[in-house]
């Protein structure tokens, strides 16, 4: 009597031997890392500050 499921077993393990490491590698690849540039950049100053004239040097 053929050892039942031997072929299923073998097939499953060939698939898992590829799938499991691939899953781990993919998950590590998508991991987020810190930003390469500054994480806070002021794009525009507030309107009031932008309108106010720059202070003179002797003030």
């Amino acid at each position: 009597m053929q050892r039942r499921h031997r072929k299923t077993h073998a097939y499953m393990w060939k698939v898992l031997a590829i799938f499991l490491p691939a899953m781990l590698i993919a998950a590590l690849a998508i991991r987020q890392h810190g930003p390469t540039e500054k994480s806070a950049v002021q794009l525009e100053k507030p309107a009031a500050e932008a309108e106010a004239p720059a202070p003179k040097a002797d003030e």
């Binding site: 799938f19 499991l20 899953m23 781990l24 993919a26 998950a27 590590l28 998508i30 987020q32």
Partner: peptide, 13 residues
């Protein structure tokens, strides 16, 4: 396999 997916997409991140 499901547990490996559970870990690598969850805690590992």
């Amino acid at each position: 396999a499901a547990i490996v997916c559970h870990i690598v997409l969850g805690s590992l991140q």
